[in-house]
Amino acid sequence: MKLGFIGCGNMATAMISGMINNHIVEATDIIASDASLQSLKNAEEKLGILTTSDNLTVATSVDVLFLSVKPQFYETVIKEIAQDIKKSTIIVTIAAGQSLKRVESLFERTLKLIRTMPNTPALVSEGITAVCRNDQVTEEEFTLVMNLLRGFGIAEEVPEHLMDAVVAVSGSSPAYVFILIEAMADAAVAEGMPRDKAYRFAAQAVLGSAKMVLETGMHPGALKDMVCSPGGTTIDAVQSLEKTGFRSSIMEAMKVCAEKSRKLS
């Protein structure tokens, strides 16, 4: 099985790295193209994959083709390769706002299309990817692609109408979490902790908290209550967060993110 990536930026690199490191596919079975020669050089050196500056070479030589360019470049790239794509090729999109219907209209013919929304924790095999497909993709083909996506984390099928919500809750949310970790570390530094320790303590606290939600199955509110002893330090901190609109800030940010995703379609 040959895999191709048109676009070899951060997200594609994270996905490829996860697939290779978890022995889902061999590096020599992957080919990628990109407008940046430096990106191709980095991918070839760090990942050991084949590279080319020609999108058409990638599109016509693989079984599964990942379109990993920014949404604004989809129309240009698809027009370049549309007429030469084999009908048997499975096309996987990873861009926000690009619906199955829109992508099919850009190709101007019916093809096997799978829409996904991964996130950058794929780089450490802790990504989560939402997936939907059109009716041209068989169960066997869908299973194949799901196995590829699980090479760098969790992959779950979702209805396409939830994809904009997925962009907000997982696609873009690593940025929110990084801001949280940075802010926690800054506050710890202000309290006298060395910065390297501050980042480690903050990041591990976030990692451990997320793992508790996933592994205990308990409601996040119940887990929060477990930390908040009566009259203790944590409840005072939570009260301060509520005063400054911590929850509403996150919810508003996600609303804006989802709205922007919808406008990209």
Rank of each mutant, 00 (worst) to 15 (best):
M163V: 01
V62A: 03
I20Q: 00
K79M: 08
T143V: 07
C228S: 15
K211A: 11
N134K: 11
K101D: 09
E242I: 01
N21P: 00
T52M: 09
S105F: 07
D164N: 15
K79V: 00
F5G: 00
A253R: 09
N119M: 08
A122F: 06
M1Y: 10
L241P: 00
A185R: 05
L65F: 06
F107L: 14
M1H: 11
T244S: 13
P159R: 08
N119V: 08
A32Y: 07
V189G: 02
G7D: 09
V131N: 03
V103S: 01
T216W: 06
A27H: 12
Q136R: 15
T116P: 01
E45I: 11
N134L: 09
R195T: 10
E141Q: 15
C8W: 05
M1V: 12
L100Y: 04
P230C: 06
R195W: 00
R150A: 02
S261R: 12
H23F: 07
A12Y: 11
G245F: 06
E242D: 12
E215N: 14
F152M: 09
V64K: 02
R247S: 11
Q72W: 01
D34I: 08
V62P: 00
S248R: 03
I181C: 11
A59N: 08
Q83R: 11
K41G: 04
C228P: 07
V131Y: 05
D84S: 15
S229F: 06
A190T: 14
L106F: 13
L162C: 12
N147I: 06
T216V: 09
K255Y: 08
G221D: 03
I235L: 10
R115D: 06
A43P: 13
V25W: 13
M218K: 15
I154S: 09
D84E: 13
S172Y: 02
R195Q: 05
E182P: 13
I78G: 06
V131M: 05
R200E: 14
L113V: 05
A32Q: 03
S39V: 07
L100F: 07
K2Y: 07
I81T: 08
M15G: 07
T51S: 07
V25Y: 10
D84K: 14
E44A: 14
E252G: 07
A95N: 09
A59T: 04
S261G: 02
A12W: 08
H219M: 10
S248L: 13
L37Q: 13
T60N: 11
V256D: 02
P230Q: 10
E215A: 10
I78W: 04
K260A: 04
G7M: 10
I91G: 06
S36K: 13
K255G: 00
T233M: 11
V124W: 02
I114E: 12
E242V: 01
E215R: 11
F66H: 05
L67F: 07
N22F: 02
T60I: 12
G171N: 05
A35G: 12
L111K: 04
K197V: 12
I154D: 01
L67P: 01
T234G: 04
D164K: 03
E259A: 14
G9W: 02
K2G: 00
